[in-house]
Structure formats: C-alpha cells, structure tokens
Nucleic acid binder design. Structure first.
Lengths: 213, 213
DNA sequence: GGTGTTACCTTTCCACCGTTAACTTAACGT
DNA sequence: ACGTTAAGTTAACGGTGGAAAGGTAACACC
C-alpha cells in the first residue's frame, strides 16, 4: 500500500511453454542494473526481481544462485569483449600491429566496463559457478583467438618459445595494468594512455626474439 | 544456552587506560580468521567479535567499519610483504638479478596469501577506507622501494625511459600473473614456475634498452 | 465447458550480515 | 562513599541470499 503500487508494473505471467522468457528478462534487468549502478553489490536478487516485476524466489527458478545470474550477464559481455578485440585486431595488416591493437582494445574495454571486468577476471574462484571457472574463457573463444593472434606473430618469426606461454605473458601484462587501474584509480599514475602503451610495447618486446648477441 | 557457553571465554574487561588492548586483540583475531579460512567473507564482524570474546558493537569502538578492520590487518601484512621482497632482492649482487629475485618473491608472497593479496590489490576502490586508497602503497614504502630497485637498474644503463614508468610496467606484469593465478586457479596454465619466470624475464627484457638497430 | 495437470510464480520464512542507539558496568580520581 | 568516564553490552533496524510450501493461471482433454 506504499511505494510498491507506484513502482514497477507487475509483469504478466508467461504462457505455458515460455518459461524461458523470464530468464531473459532477468538477465536483461541484471545487466541494466550492473551497467547503471556499476556496482555488483547493487545487483541484489531483490533489486533484480523488483526491476523485472517479479518476486525474489522466482529468480531461483532459472538460476541456482546469484553467481550464476551474474555470470550469465557476463557471458554476453564476454562475447562482446571477444568481438571488440577481434575487430580491433583486424585494423592492422601486420600481425604485430594487430596484436598491439588488440591489446589496446582489451584495456579500453576493461576500463569502460570495470564492474564486468571485475566479475569476469578478478573474482574468487569459489564464487565462480561450477563449470564456469575456465569455461568462461573457453566457451567464448576469446582465449583461443588471443593465442591465434600471438601464433601469427610467432609464425612471422618474431616470437621465440611457446606461443601459448607468450600469449599468457602478454595477457598478464594487459590484465595487470587493467586491473590495477580499476582497483586503484586514485593512485598517482602517470599518463594513462602512455602507460598502457608502455605496457603493451614492453610486453611485445619482452616476448620477441632477442637481439643477435 | 547452546553453543555459546561452550565457546570462547568472555574476555576480562581492560583497565581504564588500556582500551587499545582490545584493538590489537581484534586485529589479531581477524588476521587469524583470515589466514585460517582464507576467506574474506568468513571474517565477519560477528565472527571476529566471537573469536575475541566480545560483542559485535565493541568492534566499532575501535574501527569505524569493517573495511578499516580488514585494512588494519593488511597493513601489517603489507609491511611484511615489503620486508620479504627487500630481503629477497638483497640476494643478488647485480641490480638486474636483484630485480628478478624481487619479482619472484612478489609473486610467491602473493600466491601464498591470496586473500590478503585480494584485499590489498584487487578490491573495489569504494570499499577502501578513506586515506587508504594509495596510502597503503605509500605508508609502507613498498612502492618506493620498487621504484628504487628499478632505478638502480636504470642507472646501470640497462633501462630506457622513465624509471617510474618502467617500474609500473614491471608491476603490471607481476601483478597480472599473480592475480590471474589467484582468480583462475583451475585454468589450464602451463607450468607455474616456468610461467612466472617467463613473465619476469619478458618484463625485464621489455623495459630494457632495445638492441642497436 | 467443466476438470485435472502442470508450469509459473508468490507467500512466508530463516539465518545471517553490518551497523546504530541506548543502556549497563566496572575502574578510577577525589 | 561518590560522581565521572571509559569499556563494554543489549536490543534492534534494515538489508542480504536462499529454501519450503502454497497459490494461480494457462493449457489438454473428455
């Protein structure tokens, strides 16, 4: 009799076979909430339920717990993450330049969706639902795409050693700077873009073939 | 009348001037809990209070909120972090070798105290108490020590560009691999030690002076 | 067109959390 | 002995994720 009536219209019940509709609406609402608030904590079961116009327990008809919901949101995001990077990488003809562009896109995308990035890459393993642990990285083929991009550089004879290891080394660098900038925004960083580029070029030079000496 | 009686003896009240005693006991208990459970969530105000033998609100006589308590715990840890790295760095005569040892020590320390590392470096900025944001990095002089170590290498003519930027680039690498290994322990990583070394050597080579070309 | 079945959703509840306000109790100076 | 004050407690608020059990609307069928 108070605010509830004013708030969100109570959703009309789905038809018999269309139970999955609610699932999508839930993910949509959760994604919206996550983007708007940029705060994982604000995406509570109750808040999502309210945004959808449904009661909290209904969410558990489609997700076994809160983490599954959050990762369902991030699954979409991860697919876009992959797309964005792939597309950025196509902006250069040479494999090395492509890899550089990919790195820049990675950091930029992470920084522009920090809360998503945090959930995807900075979470406790225990809070990751079963099967999502590395599945998130494999299901979307983002990691494979990255290894491929590095392998293309290796095939040009520019990289020494195992391309997979080189790929992870580069990943560590971009993830490192991305997560640090997200977690410590008030740290007295030098110029952001220059710093990111320094990380990228250092990474590439680090895995490249050593000088003839 | 159930488990409470069995549990922890109710602490004897402190003398008049010794209110600070409780503060230490609280930090001790919180630290113990954090280490034993390796789960930040398990370090609840109530759990800490119970471990100390005191009621939850008493904690607020010494810490304005939960985060301040957690960061008080990590302040100690951070000091040890710095010590361990400094000591590791003294194990080599040449600046470059010293830096490598420092990096190895960083990753090893982070991996052996993952929950501390998470709180110190992987948290939301909003969850960091006022004045701790970069204060944690500055109060302990860990960051300065790192920059100094890099500067020593730079003075040997091995590093090009701003030593501070180079230091951050190296930090990004070690932090990247540390946090990834913490967050995604089930990912099919290649051999851990080899990977860590690959990151370290790549980082060093990345910030080193380029070949004469 | 009533009737049973089943998918969809709600009501109600629990145990826990961080935090605050108001109160008690023990130690001290006088 | 007494007032003051530091050091705690009791009780409560509003929030959380989650489980158990019940209601209700949509459909298939006779």
């Amino acid at each position: 009799m108070t605010a509830e009536s004013v708030a969100h219209a109570r959703r009309t019940r789905s038809r018999k076979g269309e139970g999955e509709k609610l699932r999508e609406e839930i993910v949509d609402a959760a994604e919206r909430l996550l983007i708007e608030t940029n705060d994982e904590e604000a995406v509570s079961i109750r808040a999502v339920a309210d945004a959808v116009g449904v009661t909290p327990p209904s969410i558990y008809l489609h997700f076994s717990d809160k983490n599954e919901l959050l990762f369902a949101v991030c699954e979409r995001h991860f697919a876009r993450f992959d797309e964005v990077i792939e597309q950025a990488g196509s902006g250069a003809d040479d494999p090395l330049g492509s890899l550089l562009l990919r790195g820049r896109a990675y950091v930029a995308f992470g920084l522009s969706h920090p809360e998503h990035y945090r959930i995807m890459f900075m979470r406790k393993p225990g809070e990751t639902p079963d099967g999502w642990q590395d599945e998130l990285l494999r299901r979307s083929s983002a990691f494979d795409h990255h290894v491929s991009a590095v392998t293309r550089v290796a095939e040009a004879g520019i990289i020494e050693g195992d391309p997979t290891v080189a790929a992870i080394v580069l990943w560590a660098g971009v993830h490192g700077i991305t997560s640090l900038l997200i977690s410590k925004p008030d740290f007295p960083w030098p110029d952001r873009d220059a710093l990111i580029d320094a990380v990228l070029t250092a990474g590439l030079r680090g895995v490249a073939v050593p000088p003839t000496s």
